[in-house]
Computed example of a mutant assay.
Amino acid sequence: MSTLLVSHLAKRFDSFEALRDINLTLQTGEFVALVGASGCGKSTLLRIIGGLETRSSGALEIDGTPIAAPGRDRAMVFQDYSLYPWLSVVENVRFCRTLKSFAKDQSQAAIGAAVRRANLLIDLMGLSRVRDARPDQLSGGMRQRVAIARALMAQPDFLLMDEPFGALDTQTREVMHDLILHVKEIERSAILFVTHDVEEAVYLADRVVVLAPNPGHIDSVWDISLPPRTQDLKLAPEFLHYKREITQRIRATSGMVSDRATLEALAGD
């Protein structure tokens, strides 16, 4: 079991304080969702953990080893898919095998194992019939499946997902929700998932972390205790309770004007 530890992490952009005193633990097999108002630093935190952004202070380590750059133990999935348009589905999935981090492991046995894993991931994602297609020939949901398969190719301990389903329609999102839960059970990677959709967070996560802005900090952590996830669960009272309470917490920390007297005063100016 691998453990990612974020301790007293902070981030500044010149005079702007984006994150302050972030403390978070993520272990193999866990699904943790980050939610919060716009500007609270969700994506910035994810990029720091992924090694795509530097931290200003604090500690970030995996199993006691400090990390400050991208690594094979972490893989990221973005909202915009980030696929290579000139490569086929299977070529995109296998792409990581061409990187320098794999250069020392190019034996025939290793290459054969990589080919088998790519084929298994393509099957798992339901992409077998389009394995030779290019990204521009695929739907949005299919493109995101390719991106997830590619991220899983290196068998990362931690899968970092930044609003991966934000551009998809409702029906496709529901399919992707059930697929990613299935993937989690099979792969056992820990998943850290940024979303603005509270319903999505409650449906997918074991824990929901609410970030508040000005500067970004952890406001509250919600352990989600629900039965096995099915789409019908979204109508259950306990599910709606989590959704309502977390949504209210985000509104309370957002800094947006919601006081009726203040709104009426503004209308009268």
Rank of each mutant, 00 (worst) to 15 (best):
L127V: 08
V130C: 12
I122C: 04
L124M: 15
V130H: 07
V146G: 01
D136I: 08
M142H: 04
R129F: 11
Q137V: 00
I148E: 07
D136Q: 09
A147N: 06
R134T: 02
G140D: 05
G141V: 07
R143Q: 08
Q137C: 05
A133C: 08
I148S: 03
Q144Y: 08
D132P: 09
D136P: 00
L127T: 03
G141Y: 02
A149G: 08
G126E: 12
R143Y: 06
A133R: 13
D132E: 14
D132V: 03
S128N: 12
S128A: 15
D123Y: 10
R134F: 14
L124D: 04
A147Y: 00
L124A: 14
R134M: 08
M142D: 01
G140Q: 06
R134W: 12
D123S: 13
R131L: 07
D132R: 11
G126R: 09
L121I: 12
R134Q: 14
D136M: 04
A149T: 13
A147W: 03
A147S: 10
D136V: 13
I148L: 13
M142S: 09
V130W: 12
V130A: 11
R145Q: 11
S128I: 15
R145L: 10
L127W: 12
A147M: 05
R131T: 10
I122T: 13
L127P: 04
R145F: 10
S139G: 01
A133G: 07
V146P: 01
M142P: 01
A147K: 05
R131K: 14
R129Y: 09
D132M: 12
S139E: 00
D132G: 12
R129E: 14
R134I: 00
